[in-house]
Amino acid sequence: MESGAASNAVGRARLSCGPDPDKGSLMDARLSDQADRDADADLLSRYAAGDAAAARLLAARLTPRLYAYAVRVLADEAAAQDVVQEAMLRVWKIAPDWRAGEAQVSTWAYRVVANLCTDLLRKQRTVALDAVAEPIDPAPTAEGRMQDAARLDALQAALSTLPDRQRQAVVLRHIEGLSNTEIGGILGVGVEAVESLTARGKRGLTTALSGQRAALGFEDDG
């Protein structure tokens, strides 16, 4: 059974997922972030007290975000699954010792994924570049969405050419939509370093994608 407060927190947090239709309201965004934080911490606390339903809710909230992040960074769905399962296992294990208020559960989980991805990518450096940079299709290509699929493939291929830290920073900032402060906490660097990583990452992507704009249907966009 969910407590009323927790349900409300989860509900508010769910509304905050995905693109924010009201980007102009900074106050709403802050409230939403706070609700997210409270909901995750509350669910983890309830899990630590033996609430299985809370575990399912927390898994449903965190796993998709962590998986999307890992897939973008690793460009390997199987490896991303292993990484996310391991990260979530660590979340369950830390639950009894979790100190609410000291860190965000999602930030902590992202950091575990980031470290696991870094370790994995370090091991993969001996593998041929072509094998690492193989683009994947993160979403099934539907009829009439060929252009989007081509763009996603191109983005994934371009991301795979970036150094590990730049790739993680760009994915967290521009696809996962996290703040520079959160990304700094995840990658263990300051905000300025995050800005530098994302700026260099974007330049790297632009270079990697140069010459493909027409093929990707961007010539008519400007």
Partner: peptide, 17 residues
């Protein structure tokens, strides 16, 4: 180039794995 990148990011955000 920035607009193109932003469009790519939007597409990726709209279609998470």
């Amino acid at each position: 180039a920035d607009q193109s990148l932003d469009a790519l990011f939007d597409a990726a955000r709209a279609a998470p794995p």
